[in-house]
Design a protein around this nucleic acid. Structure first.
Length: 479
DNA sequence: TTTTGAGTTGTTCGA
DNA sequence: GTCGAACAACTCAAA
């Protein structure tokens, strides 16, 4: 039996883990290397680190139940790996592939170094359904439009062959030292994460539970209910997927099973809508893989000179803190701050306001989301911010500027979402919940919400900024 | 090579 | 209140 280092990265699961499965009949030494310096300039934010902490604890427990032990180390990846190889006498390193530009660069270098030393380095496909080089147009170019990409995936068939969970691994020598998860200092020093514990349960088992509950309660009505932020009609699997506590193949497998069991055209239609979202995730990774410059530059070259603002100002701060004076925006930004997530519908509304109405650079929004989201994912964050800013793949047309009042009236009719997150508006009746500035002084006093005192004035004029944005974007699209 | 059809999520205005 | 059209042309992808 050979000794194999199974290098966990963002595949923190035991079931359907191709690298682990490939190594399981040998002597597996599961390792996790915390190497924050490798990830600059996109260091994971505090919310992401909170999740990682709990996910690592969970993986540690899971491995213990099958007779193994997770070895945690910190430092430069290459040095830590060499050290571990020396200490253990391992002959091989197995891992599941990641696709961000900086990670590919690091892993390619590592692979060369290890193979040069006569070691085996093997990587597997564990976090995407399709490898980014696997889905190409007829001209062998990467797709830039979603629908044909989806059709190409459908044509190949969404893979749902899953590897069963491993029941037993050989023991890891007690002499091999591991750090405690606590020592990685991933948890915040000040206590702002209380609400996270109410909203999230990281870990492989919880991810499976979330998937089952989503299919049972929400999938049948997914098309409709996913658009209403007060409901829980979305899957909320994104952070689990990001850290690989669950694989997209496992999701496809479970959806297909449910489809088979339920046997209803409506259910099947809703199931497809959800699978399309999973394929959006694939699409964002494929686009970043093929166009690594999009991390900082617009995919659409017309936007090279686009005059987005890039300064730190009061307006940006007000947006970040949920103090814009627009209830739906403030609800979303506060939900994000408190829970590490924001409903998808609301992400579009706040993104449109920042990039189009306020004319901020999409990277400003991307950076804030990166720091605050538990599901922060480089490919998806980059893609989606470029999408809403109108400069990305299959982007929103220039005239699509969300109106936060209209959106709010449409998707949070009774203001339940707003009142949940913006307590100043708790007593404001439905008539004014989307437009509290329309209350006269007496009403403001009566409902205990004085504009400019209890709740902020609006930070911008919707109509005027919309017209300015239309002018700017029209110029850019029409040149 | 050329042609053809289509393209996540919206808003506003006027009939 | 409801509905359809305008907002624009361009690029992508496949036939």
């Amino acid at each position: 039996m050979r000794k194999i280092l199974v290098w966990f990265r963002r595949d923190l699961r035991v079931a359907d883990n191709p690298a682990l499965s490939a190594a399981k009949s040998d002597r597996v030494i599961p390792i996790y290397i915390h190497a924050p310096d490798d990830e600059a300039p996109w260091q994971p934010g505090a919310a992401s680190n909170w999740w990682l902490h709990h996910s690592l604890l969970s993986l540690q427990d899971r491995l213990k139940t099958i007779g193994s032990r997770l070895i945690i180390r910190q430092g430069d990846t290459q040095q830590v790996l060499s050290r571990l190889i020396e200490e253990t006498g391992a002959e091989a390193v197995y891992c599941n592939r990641l696709y961000e530009p900086a990670t590919i660069k690091r892993d390619t270098k590592l692979k060369k170094q290890l193979t040069d030393q006569g070691l085996e380095y093997r990587s597997f496909s564990g976090s995407l359904l399709f490898e980014p080089w696997q889905i190409k147009t007829g001209n062998d170019t990467p797709y830039k439009v979603y629908t044909p990409f989806w059709h190409a995936c459908e044509k190949q068939g969404l893979p749902h062959d899953i590897q069963p969970a491993i029941r037993k691994l050989s023991a890891v020598s007690t002499r091999l030292k591991s750090m405690h998860v606590d020592e990685l200092q991933l948890l915040p020093h000040i206590d702002w994460d209380a609400a996270f514990y109410e909203h999230w349960q990281p870990g492989e088992a919880k991810a499976q539970k979330r998937l089952r509950e989503f299919i049972k309660h929400d999938l049948a009505d997914y098309d409709r209910s996913r658009d209403y932020p007060e409901r829980t009609g979305t899957s909320r699997l994104s952070p689990h997927l990001h850290f690989g506590e669950i694989s997209p193949r496992q999701i496809v497998y479970a959806i297909e099973q449910a489809r088979h069991t339920v046997q209803s055209p409506t259910f099947s239609k809703n199931a497809n809508s959800y699978l399309r979202e999973i394929i959006w995730r694939e699409f964002t990774h494929h686009v970043l893989y093929s166009f690594p410059d999009t991390l900082s530059k617009p995919l659409n070259p017309r936007f090279k000179q686009f005059p987005w603002q890039n300064r730190q100002t009061k307006l940006l701060r007000a947006w970040q803190l949920g103090q814009t004076g627009f209830p739906i925006i403030d609800a979303g930004m506060r939900e994000l701050w408190h829970t590490g997530i924001m409903h998808n519908r609301v992400r579009m509304i706040v993104g449109s306001l920042l990039t189009k109405n306020a004319n901020y650079h999409w990277l400003q929004g991307a950076k804030w989301f990166w720091d605050t989201l538990v599901d922060a994912d480089l490919a998806q964050n980059t893609f989606n911010w470029q999408w809403i800013a109108g400069c990305g793949a299959d982007a929103a047309p220039y005239f699509r500027i969300f109106n936060p009042v209209t959106q709010s009236e449409k998707f949070d009719k009774n203001g339940n979402y707003i009142r949940k997150w913006v307590s100043e508006l708790r007593d404001v009746p439905n008539k004014f919940i989307h437009t509290p500035w329309e209350m006269d002084e007496q009403q403001q006093a009566q409902y205990r919400c004085r504009i400019g005192h209890d709740y902020p004035e609006r930070i911008l004029d919707l109509k005027q900024t919309r017209e300015e944005a239309l002018r700017l974007y029209k110029q850019t699209s029409g040149d």
